[in-house]
Amino acid sequence: MTAGGLDRAALLHLAVPALLFALQFVLPDYHHVNLARVMVLASFAAGYNIVFGYTGLLSLGHAMFFGAGLYTAGLLAQYAGVAAAPGFVLAILAGALFAALVGILALRTSGVSFMIVTLMFAQAAYLALHYFGDYTRSDEGFVVPAELRRLFGLALADPATRYFTALALFTGTLAVCHAVARSSFGRVLAAIRENEERTRMLGYDVFAYKLVALALSGAVSAAAGAAYAMLFGYVGAGLASIQYSIYPLLWVLMGGAATVLGPFLGTLAMFYLVDTASGFTSAYLFLVGLALIALVLFFPKGVLGTLRERALPWLP
């Protein structure tokens, strides 16, 4: 690893938010909203990537962490009149705490069992949303009052503010992922992914590292969930369904697991793929399914992972 490699990576990670910042002035309204949504969802995918990509744990329950953020912010606003800023902070804490609790149990298993346990916890959480349907309004969901969707006096429903807030969130998660990928903490996570037993025999408390990774991942996912509630004003159980555990997996696989920019690239590509397809067919699930199969069959490292392998070894 040369110093030049480090600089190139950092520059690239600054260039992408800068480009997104510039784009908002030229984009038509339709793509303006879309890109804001993509940035929020990409933050979710980036959070998922910390566990799936860097640590090598296949979770099928991340919708519960996205949902934890979504509902913490949404319910607090709806029933306690909590404003966006404190709601956002509380949502992140809730996500981290929830992920840590799930992790203490789920991380005692590994491989396929870990996937099933996370799936089961997420399913229980999803069902709980229905059980308390009087408050959560179940699948129908509820709309967060506009007067609470304000940040530093600016209305989050306003397109420019919304875009800028989404960009800020995205840049923040990018910075977190960049730091993880570059840090000695990230190196230990990668070591756990490669060979858990060897990592333990180098003196690392593997369980603790995984737990911290999962809590961090939960916090980032919850941040995205809270932002979704506040920026788009809608909170519903569909956003915490198993579908939303599978999407981040798809996005990360497409962009490239264990790459910093992969989750964004994958989310963007998949979003517009589905968007374009729905122009002439309603059968967009075909696309999602075929993309998943094609990715594992022909392209298991995703776009950036393949690029890193073939041409750009310095790519973080």
């Binding site: 997996l249 696989l253 967009y284 699930l285 075909f286 999602v288 399914g289």
Partner: peptide, 16 residues
């Protein structure tokens, strides 16, 4: 793990 991902894909294809 690859099989899990692929069969999720299959799930969507059949459902659709």
């Amino acid at each position: 793990e690859a099989t899990i991902v692929a069969t999720i894909g299959l799930l969507y294809v059949i459902q659709q």
